[in-house]
Design a binder for these strands. Structure first.
Lengths: 237, 237
DNA sequence: ACCTGAACACCGTTCAAGT
DNA sequence: ACCTGAACACCGTTCAAGT
């Protein structure tokens, strides 16, 4: 039987994407993917070194969906807001996979290009390099984690089961003692289900951009070669 | 042989904490925990319904470490900054476990008390309920994800291996084509290793508080019973 | 080059049984 | 009440072999 050329990286990844979207990341197993392609588990090892490499490729696939806007003359914060919106837009359709990106921000040329652009814009915003690095990571992570924890996304894609989860969570919050947790009881609805996904993510981008515009810029580090003792210590640590 | 009373929830959790800190969350297995306590895997099922319940208890344990400051007369943003710093302070010692909190923010009385306080302060800040709910989630997630992705924390607690990971990541970033990724090359150092952990987290809190102080407040929703058509649609969706 | 088969060292969990 | 023993249905991965 001709059992060759049934598989390639793309096929495996699109299968994994389907499974993860439907049943969560834990449901992505090498044996399961193989079975779904009518192939032996070992066949996957011809295309991926191990499971980690499949996850890497999935993260890469997500990041590849980020439309990186062209650099233009608008103020840095408008360009950054567009970029962040595009970032969120790429992850939103795959909430079960978003966590992969959290620890793989610098994967592939495209991931690097996105990170490079963010640092460029933060430099334009007046942040010294080290602060820009820290704050840039947080900015992206903050949006990624919004996708991971999006209210009303329990993990299962089945609409019926999803609805049950939402109702259960809302009921739980509404059943709390109102004198002790008045705000949680009052906010049970938006905490359980994301009244508007668009608004949820728009608020996320607005919050972080607003913070970047107003947070204090730190003093730039001393230039290399003339560093203070403290800077030198930091550098060699 | 008297094999009773060797185990309880606390013992299991502290063992799991040790294992996760040392070898990561994947190393926390029921069989492994049992072996480390000199007990059969099945013994754990007398104290936890399943593995999920162990993870829940771990998240609970982390949140229990958050010192919730007393309400006082200072402006909301100062009180919130203190609370967020305390939150980060509780997670920082356990970066391998931080991700558990991301999806378990409302676990246990203490987690609820923290969430309640955040909503209280955001209300004081002038946010209408729905916006406060969305933005409050993001605020916490943003800090939790900073711990998860803290530069220079690869997963292994072994200092030698950790150092090797850091050097590898820095070398990778520095080896990139500088004309294409000038900022990434220049920022290789702070991207790879967190020059100062304290500064890293202080910047995180400062960024999000700064954003909360300056981001636009939305119009409050129409009171119940007199909602606009749009609001009614949203409510029943 | 690409896939198969058998095997190894693991998992979480159930069920029935011991004390 | 608390722990054990055996078993089931899974994992990822290695090694040798087929075509």
């Amino acid at each position: 039987m001709n059992a060759q050329r049934q598989l390639n990286r793309e096929i495996v990844i699109s299968t994994a994407l389907l499974v993860a979207d439907r049943d969560g990341l834990d449901a992505v197993t090498i044996r399961g993917l193989a079975q779904q392609r009518g192939v032996t588990p070992m066949a996957l090892y011809r295309h991926f070194r191990d499971k980690e490499e499949i996850f890497d490729a999935l993260a890469e696939h997500l990041l590849a969906g980020v439309r990186l806007p062209e650099v233009d003359d608008r103020p840095w914060h408008e360009q950054l807001a567009d970029l962040l919106a595009a970032y969120v837009g790429a992850l939103r359709p795959h909430p079960n996979l978003a966590e992969l990106v959290l620890t793989r921000m610098f994967i592939s040329d495209w991931g690097l290009a996105i990170a490079e652009r963010i640092l460029l814009l933060l430099e334009e915003a007046g942040f010294p390099m080290e602060q820009a690095a820290n704050i840039g990571i947080q900015t992206v992570c903050s949006l990624v984690s919004m996708v991971i924890t999006q209210p009303g996304h329990g993990g299962s894609a089945d609409p019926e089961e999803r609805d049950a989860e939402i109702r259960a969570k809302r009921a739980y919050l509404m059943s709390l003692p109102p004198q002790r947790y008045p705000h949680l009881v009052a906010a049970a609805d938006p905490l359980a289900l994301c009244v508007s996904e668009d608004a949820y993510y728009a608020r996320g981008v607005a919050l972080v951009v607003s913070g970047l515009r107003t947070v204090e810029r730190e003093a730039a580090a001393a230039p290399a070669g003339q560093g203070t003792a403290a800077a030198a210590t930091r550098r060699t640590r």
